[in-house]
C-alpha cells in the first residue's frame, strides 16, 4: 500500500499524517478512511449489471415470449399482469424485446471495447515502454483517429459495408482504440519508470517478457476502470447510430427499439414502447458510468482520455 512512496520524505522518517513512510506505518490504514472505498453505490451498480447480463445471456432459455412474435398481445397493450412492459404497435411483448435488445446492445458495447482494449492497449503498451520513434508513430496515429469525426467515420463505414452486427462492432471498436490506447500509454509510462522494470532488464528479461510480466498486470488495473466507462459510451453510440437508421440489420438493439417507438403516434398512444428500452439503457449506462468512475477513483487513475 505504501506504493506512493515519497523518497525525499521517507529518508528522514516521518509520521503517519505526512507521508506514506517506508517502515510499515499506518498510512495505508489512514488512506482507507479518506475515501478509498468502493461504496454501496458501486455494488448496486454491479448488481444491476450482473442481472442484465445474466438475463440477456439466458434469453433463449427464459420462459418469455418470442420477441418477434407479432400479436402476442394486443396492439399497444398497456403494461399489466399479462405483458409486464406492455406490447408495441405489432403486439410484440416489450418485456421480452427489452431483454433481447440487451443482447445486441451489450454485445456491441462489449465486443467494441474488447477490440479497443486488445488493439489500443497493445499499441499503448508498446508506445509507453519503448518511447522514441515507436511512441511518436503510435501517438500520431492515436491523434489522427481522435481528430477524425467519429460519427462521420461510422456513417462512411456502415454505408460502405452494410450494417451487420459485425460491422457495427468493428466500427465502434476502431473508434475506441485511440482513447484506450492513450490511457494504456500513460499508465505504461508511469510504471516503466519504476525501478522494478529496470531490475528486470538488469536480470536479462526480454522486452516482451517485461511488457507481459511486469507492465501488463499493472496497466490492466486502470484499464479495467476505463473498460466500464468505454462500454457505456459505446452503448450510447450504438443508440445514436440506430437513431440514424444505421443500427444492426440482423436483429434489434435498444437503440433500434427506441427508434421504432419514437414515431409521433406511437409516442402519444403508447409511450411505454419507448420508455422501457430507454429506461433499460439509462440504468445500464448509469451503472457502467458509476461503477467505472468509482473504480477509477479507487484505483486513482489520473489521465482518462474520454
Amino acid at each position: 500500500m505504501a506504493d506512493r512512496l515519497d523518497l525525499g520524505e521517507s529518508a528522514g522518517g516521518n509520521d503517519p499524517l505526512h507521508v506514506p513512510v517506508v517502515e510499515g506505518y499506518p498510512m495505508a490504514a489512514l488512506d482507507t478512511t479518506l475515501g478509498r472505498r468502493l461504496g454501496a453505490g458501486f455494488w448496486v451498480s454491479v448488481g444491476w449489471l450482473v442481472v442484465i447480463v445474466t438475463v440477456a445471456a439466458l434469453a433463449p432459455w427464459l420462459p418469455i415470449a418470442d420477441p418477434n412474435e407479432t400479436g402476442y398481445g394486443g396492439r399497444m397493450d398497456r403494461p399489466g399482469w399479462a405483458t409486464w412492459f406492455g406490447t408495441d404497435t405489432n403486439g410484440r411483448d416489450m418485456f421480452s424485446r427489452t431483454i433481447w435488445g440487451a443482447r445486441v446492445s451489450l454485445t456491441v458495447g462489449f465486443v467494441a471495447i474488447a477490440a479497443g482494449l486488445a488493439i489500443g492497449g497493445t499499441l499503448g503498451l508498446i508506445a509507453g515502454y519503448f518511447r522514441g520513434t515507436a511512441d511518436r508513430v503510435i501517438s500520431f496515429a492515436f491523434f489522427a483517429l481522435l481528430s477524425f469525426p467519429g460519427l462521420v467515420f461510422a456513417l462512411l463505414i456502415i454505408a460502405a459495408l452494410g450494417s451487420s452486427l459485425k460491422v457495427v462492432c468493428m466500427t465502434l471498436g476502431v473508434l475506441s482504440i485511440a482513447p484506450v490506447g492513450r490511457l494504456a500509454r500513460a499508465a505504461t509510462l508511469v510504471f516503466a519508470e519504476r525501478e522494478f522494470v529496470q531490475a528486470s532488464r538488469v536480470l536479462g528479461a526480454t522486452h516482451t517478457r517485461i511488457m507481459l510480466r511486469e507492465l501488463l498486470p499493472n496497466v490492466l488495473i486502470p484499464m479495467s476502470a476505463l473498460a466500464l466507462l468505454g462500454m457505456a459510451v459505446t452503448i450510447v453510440a450504438e443508440g445514436a447510430l440506430a437513431y440514424l437508421g444505421l443500427s444492426v440489420s440482423d436483429g434489434f438493439s435498444w437503440g433500434k427499439m427506441i427508434l421504432l417507438g419514437s414515431a409521433p403516434r406511437t409516442l402519444r398512444d403508447g409511450p411505454w414502447v419507448v420508455m422501457f428500452p430507454i429506461g433499460a439503457m439509462f440504468l445500464t449506462v448509469l451503472a457502467l458510468n458509476y461503477a467505472g468512475d468509482r473504480l477509477r477513483q479507487y484505483l486513482d487513475v489520473r489521465e482518462l482520455a474520454f
Partner: peptide
C-alpha cells in the same frame, strides 16, 4: 529524535 512513526512530527503538528 526518532524514526518514522515515532510521533515526532505529529507532536510538532
Amino acid at each position: 529524535v526518532g524514526e518514522s512513526g515515532s510521533g515526532k512530527s505529529v507532536t510538532a503538528k
